[in-house]
């Protein structure tokens, strides 16, 4: 039993979900797979008065080839992303990072959109989306708008999504010839990354996203510049923690996280052949 009672609305369409958000404002939370939200509610860290269940909006469950990008519906489950031939061949880094999310049971239920809008800086997927320069499509009362992933994560568990808006699609540029690596360091099987890194190099241009190195997932822009300028893996990795403000918790302090960022970035760069 979730400790705090709430009202439950099952949305049968995007319009119904948006109408419920318009009515209940910030008292409402959207429920997709529930694998980020329900654990918070059990701990009373989230106590929404109204849950708007969008889990039945099957129209938002798809992976499509759309010209120069792969379009992934927000309610697509992690397992579908992980095993999609299209994602694996055109956006392999995202498939790889997704395979590290939680465990098989979590990936059967959790959704890419739910994970991303949760805005957890320790989550695996944002690092891949940052590295690949994804675009997020949200829908609100006045229609759709696109948000570059660089502008999406605004604070700890906070994203640039209005209380009356719904994430509907994630667009990942197709990179069939890219070389990439996802490196994650944790102590126990299903834990969040203490630090993780996504690296992709495509047509001579690099993208590097860091996990759990700040209150938001962030790009290692100094490493990107070094790689693009021809630095070796070990040279470029030296600046992996530049500009980051790593958190301190039971697993690690900032200095150790900075060390991990350098080591994991060097390993990832070595995998991609820098």
């Amino acid at each position: 039993m979730i400790p705090t009672a709430f009202d439950y609305i099952r949305a049968r369409s995007i319009e119904e979900a948006l109408a419920a958000l318009a009515t209940h404002g910030d008292e409402a939370k959207l429920l997709a797979g529930g694998h980020s939200l329900l654990p918070l509610m059990k701990l009373r860290l989230a106590t929404p008065a109204v849950l708007v269940d969008i889990g039945r909006l099957d129209d938002l469950r798809y992976i499509n080839d759309v010209g120069d990008y792969v379009a992934i519906g927000a309610l697509t489950r992690h397992r579908s992303v992980e095993t999609s031939d299209l994602v694996r061949s055109q956006a392999g880094l995202l498939a790889e990072a997704t395979s590290y999310v939680g465990d098989p049971q979590v990936r059967h239920m959790g959704t890419i959109g739910g994970s991303v809008v949760h805005g957890d800086p320790a989550s695996d997927l944002p690092s891949a989306l940052l590295a690949m320069r994804a675009t997020l499509v949200v829908q609100g009362p006045s229609g759709q708008r696109e948000i570059a992933v660089d502008d999406f994560f605004t604070g700890f568990l906070d994203v640039s999504l209005g209380v009356d808006e719904l994430l509907i699609e994630i667009r990942v540029p197709k990179m069939p010839d890219a070389r990439w690596s996802f490196q994650k360091f944790n102590r126990r099987a299903q834990d969040w990354a203490i630090v993780g890194v996504s690296v992709v190099v495509n047509n001579g241009s690099s993208g590097i996203g860091l996990v759990n190195m700040d209150s938001v997932p962030l790009r290692a822009v100094a490493v990107e510049a070094a790689v693009n300028g021809g630095a070796s893996a070990s040279e470029a990795a030296q600046v992996a923690a530049e500009g980051a403000n790593p958190p301190s918790d039971l697993n690690a302090g900032p200095e150790y996280r900075e060390h991990l960022a350098r080591v994991l970035t060097r390993r990832a760069l070595a995998v991609v052949g820098c």
Binding site: I2, L38, M109
Partner: peptide, 11 residues
């Protein structure tokens, strides 16, 4: 396979 402690019955 899913974890039934992290799914609402209504889901």
């Amino acid at each position: 396979s899913v974890k039934s402690c992290t799914i609402l019955a209504v889901q």
